[in-house]
Design a protein around this nucleic acid. Sequence first.
DNA 1: AAAGCGTTCAAGCATCTGATTGACTAACCG
DNA 2: CGGTTAGTCAATCAGATGCTTGAACGCTTT
Lengths: 208, 208
Amino acid sequence: MDSPDVTDQRRETGLRTRTRLRDAALDLLAERGEDGVTLRELTDAAGANVSAVSYHFGSLKALCDAAIEDALEHYLDAQHEALSELGPESTVEALAAAFASPMIRALATGGRDLAVMRIVARAGIDPPGGWDRLAARFDGVRADVLTVLKANVPGVKDQELLFRTRCVAGMMNWLVLAPIGSELRSKSEKQLERLLVPVIAGAFSGAS
Amino acid sequence: MDSPDVTDQRRETGLRTRTRLRDAALDLLAERGEDGVTLRELTDAAGANVSAVSYHFGSLKALCDAAIEDALEHYLDAQHEALSELGPESTVEALAAAFASPMIRALATGGRDLAVMRIVARAGIDPPGGWDRLAARFDGVRADVLTVLKANVPGVKDQELLFRTRCVAGMMNWLVLAPIGSELRSKSEKQLERLLVPVIAGAFSGAS
DNA sequence: AAAGCGTTCAAGCATCTGATTGACTAACCG
DNA sequence: CGGTTAGTCAATCAGATGCTTGAACGCTTT
């Protein structure tokens, strides 16, 4: 049996390239999407040999799937946490701010957080392999939103409120993916919130 | 000099394959995006030889560019026409209905109209070559929307209203591209309008 | 009939794709 | 020291990619 406590220098360097590969995959996936990631470009960006991908992940697709799944999980955690700090009797504006907070933070922070956000957005268009397991979690988030929405937007059927939630999520994804996202990156979190919350809350509530 | 009135059967069959290639490109571009279109798949779908693309369009990219430009122009015409029937003192709901009408019609009609719509949506994420010429027309459409919006949503800066317009456009593009679009296709124009207009109008107006 | 022309076609090209192989290094262990 | 193992690497593979070529086809014109 292995003794993982002992620092085996060989395994340590292996883990390092493994991480570099995963990070490079994250960046490339965010920029070009799953079909746009090539083995050479990935390994060049990671400073690794082509065969390192097969060695550490089995295949390029397996690496991409793992990176995408990590990104989705990471985003779901952030959004669930933001929503869970919300009481069931919050205002629609507070709901909008919470719902958008992971995206706003990603835009303001940039770097790998933004890459994660863009991967999430792309996954909304092209559902990756093994989507079923994560779809349930997305449904859960939408259910959390619905709870607050039902108390604040009366006279609208649940099904329609759920549709509005998906519309809002799609709008946020779009802002991250489209060229306008580059313009938004130069703004602070406060500015982004002031800009986005009225639109999102308005979409949730329906026409004034 | 040629006499174009005379039906030269050779040129006629040539035009047919040219059209078939363009239509096949439209369908494939809508489904897979520009990078997902391969020469063999395209020519197989069109029932043509690979070299037909080079002969008629110069290159695969040129064919895709032409098809995308056609789609964008077609969509801009439809949207501009819908907006021009709007008086400058219309309600936000009427503006929302007009703004979304090309998309709603495409969803209800399906077929090539929907393909055009999806190509437009993809172009919003990955601007195609020669985008500059068309960007001005999109700015024009947004200016039309702004005119109506300024009269109905007081106390909000033009810059912010323009941002909301881009948010709404992005949301619509998303709905067409994401898997939820398949669900929407089973609905009638009336149903789609009833579902979409409140969300769009709400996003335009801001939080209730 | 014969030459001209627009179009189509199978075959082939260079390049890039993801993946595999076997040799090689270096760290670990007895 | 010798044997084992984890990891890296250059070389190579088969397949797919976009594109070109030269020949052939069939209609049009003279």
